Each structure stands twice: as structure tokens, then as C-alpha cells.
Computed example of a mutant assay.
Amino acid sequence: MAEADPQTMPLADTAAPAKKPVPRWRKALLMLGVPVLIVACGLYYWFGHPGEVATDNAYLKLDIVSVASEVPGKITKVHVKENQIVKAGDILFEIDPSEYENAVSQANAQIAAAQARVTALGADVDATAADLAGARDDLALAQANYRREKELMDRGFNTRARMDAATHAVASARDQLQALQADVAKAKAQLATGSQVPGVNPEVAAGRAALSQARLNLDRTVVRAPVDGRVTQVSRLNVGQSAMAALPMLSIVRDEGARVEANFKETDLTQMRPGQKARITFDAYPDLELTGHVDSIGAGTGSEFSVLPAQNATGNWVKITQRVPVRIAIDQKSSRPLISGLSTEVTVYTGDE
């Protein structure tokens, strides 16, 4: 028997063995496990952190002090640069002092003039007092002459003309005495002092007050830092620029007093109280975490203090969860620089399990 043609011989079954069917219990487990896992994740999201409320609608706040010149004038020197750290009392910039130095000189001249006037009035009082003594003597002499002329007239040895002359002399002497007495009283009144500045002539006191104000204004031409902090907005300061009184020229951001203004949903305030501990994280510093506490809870929602508060008076009213500002005090010193306005995330531990 001839050998069979190998090409016509049936090939051996080389196909891979068929996969075993997945057991039904596994299918049921997958079908039930996925929805259960989704529900569990949802429950963990809502209830996984009992006793905590958190918000990422929170921003770091620092005290910013606006610095303005108290007197107007031209800026002559600028001593600071942008972001420079200064201490309270450091010189920030200077204003041309020429006008205020002149005011000091004028005030000194005013005091000198008042003092000279006081001296002159004192001399006038002394001179008038001497004239007053002479006037009294003149009156006494005129009265003595009148009495002699009157005795002669009574005895019939005098004329009416002499009596009239004696009478006129007495009247003139009396008028002169009264005029001098009035001058002395006026001079003494000008030298008198009031109860507000006892012992000091009012004109001298006014001059001293003007001098004190002039010196104060001169001192104010050197503008100093009122607090410690970091200088900003220095670009508004230029030599030769005119500074206006009470117009802010730069700002100082204080390092102390850092806090977080966190806007929590009104539904998160149920168990929130001042004094509760808080955790603060920063978007700018992922590795930085600070501790703090609830300092205070705002007296109104953000919409209440807006320029145009919302008025939900239409028929299509939709209830919107409001945000309430909560101030979070920072309890520890930061290892990184704190910049006003940084975005933060705040978690408050309310203890509501």
C-alpha cells in the first residue's frame, strides 16, 4: 500500500484550548460591586470627615497701611525701593522744607515783635504813671488857687473873670488827670494775661503757638514709616513730584496680624463657634500647613455688603446657598513669606461627630 501523501493527510489539531467560561458568581460580584463602590465613595465624600467643614474660598489678608504726606510740597528725596522691608521710624521720603523753614522764621519774628510790644507797653505804663503824678499835682494847685480866688470873691476883692479862670483851671486839670488814668488802664489791659495762658501776654502766646505749628510742619517734611512692614506701590514716588496732603503716596504691608478671610456656606455654620481649631493650607506653598482658630464669624453674608445687594423679588426665585465670611486667626509663625491675597484652603474642626 502506497504511502499516503503527506499533503493530503489531516493536520493535527493545533488550536489553543477554549477558555473556561467566567463563573456566574464573578459576574454577579462585578455587577453589584461597582455600584456599591460608587455609592461608598459618595458616602465617604459627604460623610467621610465628620466634625470638619472646609472651604477653598479663602484668602490670606494682611494689614495694609497707606502712607501720605501731612503737608504739601515737592518731593526732594526718596529713601525706599519697592518691596523693601522697613522699621517704624525709618525715613521713606522727604519734601522741600524751604517754605516751612520760612514759616518758622516768621513765627520767631512774630514772637519778637510781640515781646517788643510788651516791653514798649510796660515803658508807656511807667511814663504815664509819672505823668499821672504830675497831673495830680496840677489839679491840687488849681484847686488851691480856686479856693484863694473864692475867698477873695467872698470878701469882695476879686473879679468874676479871675473866678472863671480859676474854675476853668480846675476843670482842665481834672480832665487831664482822668485822661492819663484812662491811658494807664488801657496799657495795663494790653499787658494783662488770660486764664488760658496765665503769666504770658496773649500776643506772645499766639506767636509761640504759630512757632510750634511751623516747627511741626517742618518736621512733617520728613515722612517716616508708621509701622514695620514691606513697602509697596513706591512707583508713585518720584523726585520733583508734588505731594498733596492726605493723598496716599505708598503703602506698607504689615508682617504681623496675618489672618484668613474664609467664605463658608451658610449650611457649614451649624456647629461652628469662635475658638475652634482650624487647618490652613496654601495653593502657593503646597508643603506649608499652618494651624489657626476661628476668630469671629461675620455679621452678614457677602451679598449683604455688596454695592448692589441682590433683590429676589421676581417670580422666578431660585434659592442660592449664601456665603458667610469667617475670620481665621493664624496661631503659628510661617516658614514662608505670607503675601496678602494668597488663595488658601481652610478646614475647621467643629467637633460635630
Rank of each mutant, 00 (worst) to 15 (best):
P97C: 02
E94P: 01
I95E: 02
A107E: 04
D138T: 10
S98W: 10
N201W: 01
L139P: 05
D124R: 06
D138P: 00
A192D: 13
S195Q: 14
G134S: 15
M163N: 07
A179L: 14
D96S: 09
A182E: 07
A189C: 02
A120F: 01
V200L: 12
T128A: 09
P97V: 07
T193G: 05
I75C: 08
L180F: 08
T159H: 06
V125K: 00
S98E: 15
S105F: 04
A112Y: 01
L132Y: 03
A109P: 04
A88W: 05
A113Q: 08
A185I: 06
L152N: 09
P97I: 05
I91E: 12
G199M: 14
R160W: 04
Q190R: 05
K188S: 00
E149C: 04
L180A: 06
H168V: 12
G156Y: 09
A182M: 06
A120C: 01
Q115W: 00
V78C: 09
I95T: 01
A192V: 07
F157P: 01
A179H: 10
Q110C: 04
T76Y: 10
R160I: 11
S195M: 07
R136E: 12
S105C: 03
T119K: 02
Q110D: 09
L92N: 08
A192F: 12
D131I: 08
L191I: 03
T193N: 11
A192M: 06
S98V: 15
L180M: 11
P97S: 11
E99Y: 11
V184N: 02
N201C: 08
S98M: 14
A187Y: 03
A187F: 02
N83T: 09
I75T: 08
A129C: 06
R162L: 10
N108V: 14
D175N: 15
A165Y: 00
E99M: 12
A107G: 06
L141D: 08
S172E: 14
G156T: 11
P97A: 07
N145K: 15
D154Q: 15
L139F: 07
V104W: 10
A185F: 08
I111D: 04
F93A: 12
N145V: 12
R155P: 02
A114K: 08
D164E: 07
R160S: 10
R148Q: 13
V197T: 15
R174I: 02
R117T: 10
D137H: 09
V200M: 02
K186E: 04
T76P: 01
G134C: 05
A173D: 10
I95G: 02
G73W: 04
D96C: 06
Q196K: 14
